[in-house]
Write a protein that binds this DNA or RNA. Sequence first.
DNA 1: AATCAAAACTGATAAAAGTCATCTTTTTCG
DNA 2: CGAAAAAGATGACTTTTATCAGTTTTGATT
Lengths: 238, 238
Amino acid sequence: MAKVEFNIACTLCDHLKDSLFNGLNPEDMSRINNHKTCIQYKKGQNIFYEGTRPTGLYCMNGGKVKVYKNNVQGKEFIIYIAKPGDFLGYRALLSEDFYKATATVLEDAKICFIPKESFFEVLQKNPVFMRRVVQAVCNEMGIMEEKLAELAHKSVRERLAANLLMLKETYGMEGEGSTLIELALSREDLASIVGTATETVIRLLSEFKNDGLITFEGKKIRVLDARKLAKQADLIIA
Amino acid sequence: MAKVEFNIACTLCDHLKDSLFNGLNPEDMSRINNHKTCIQYKKGQNIFYEGTRPTGLYCMNGGKVKVYKNNVQGKEFIIYIAKPGDFLGYRALLSEDFYKATATVLEDAKICFIPKESFFEVLQKNPVFMRRVVQAVCNEMGIMEEKLAELAHKSVRERLAANLLMLKETYGMEGEGSTLIELALSREDLASIVGTATETVIRLLSEFKNDGLITFEGKKIRVLDARKLAKQADLIIA
DNA sequence: AATCAAAACTGATAAAAGTCATCTTTTTCG
DNA sequence: CGAAAAAGATGACTTTTATCAGTTTTGATT
């Protein structure tokens, strides 16, 4: 499981359009580009650990990474799943804090590392970029507030349904016709997203399947009836 | 319940030292000061509503304000309780978004309103201030991640104990000897903080009281045995 | 002080979800 | 390929917590 380096110019990156780096002026772009290190990771490898200090920013070029916290009993809660174009570990970096979560590769990933100094330099010189970062962070916060309320007052069934819909939206292929969740999650990982026990997820998934709301395609899940699923999630009434 | 204006120079504000405005240069400080409007609110009044657009930033000068989301069935989840020195509503403002929560006065409050334009002007002109705001936002996010994991995997009893300790730390008087939670919360509000039913909070509180962990003083709660409470919260083992 | 409303409390019950044990299927890897 | 491990699935059982219905207490108002 050795780390393999690769290289791609940021300007040629397929995911630049989805990234916060999009629209950066050439000077700043090359500052990022010239200082980055790009590494290929295999499934199961860790990107960073809870309790350690960030030394830079990770920028996803391929694959999927889960960011999660472990509680005392070793139970995992997945805070989010990073996809290409996403930044990783910026929260701890920007608040000059330890990592409060661990990041582990879910699907073989290509990730670029930008040293703290380079990132901060661009951030300080470029108020427009700073503004966009702030906006993204605050957006993220809004989503987390939503999740908090959901976790506090929705049943596991509702949360599972809601998360399946979210996963379909976020990791489905582009275009409206996308119904397949392009992410092979284990039942255990799904449980860690929803905040419940693995057995409960298994039972509910097979109920959803029996009711024709979803099907399993290999390790992936296809949403057959998004509307009924939304009803299960209590997102639409009646 | 008419709104009553008052005025206090920012430089003379008792809570400047706890605020993100602390350390602002005189020019920026007076820009904020000259454009602010300060209003006294009574318990129960609303500061802003979920679904509306922010037009500026609120800065707490006195009292307490709860920021919460209502779910479909009308159940409330309190995201945080703002105290003097805190900013209110900056998340939606910075992400150019609607308010995703409602703010209601818990204890008669004095709140200053800074128009969007003035705030953004200072933010843009002053990268150090911007940096501090970003740091605060990211810190807040770290706390919310913690809350998410707590909500996902801890029992109601553990969460209540943890929240009582948090309330003691945050709203107790300064100094180590502070054991009284300086905030008269109804059982219903406490339930909305913990994410449970009012009856459950009532039952657990009286258990905690019987076990000598807390006492009631009027409408307030005093933490008698923080160590045992931390044990109940599963924060320390054995 | 009497009245009313809201908040606090109590008990009974039911539903939801976790845990544990076991079994089957799939995947991994020498 | 075949053994071992991991993931998935199922059943029985228990615990936790929500819900409902009702009572008591407190506080506000006239």
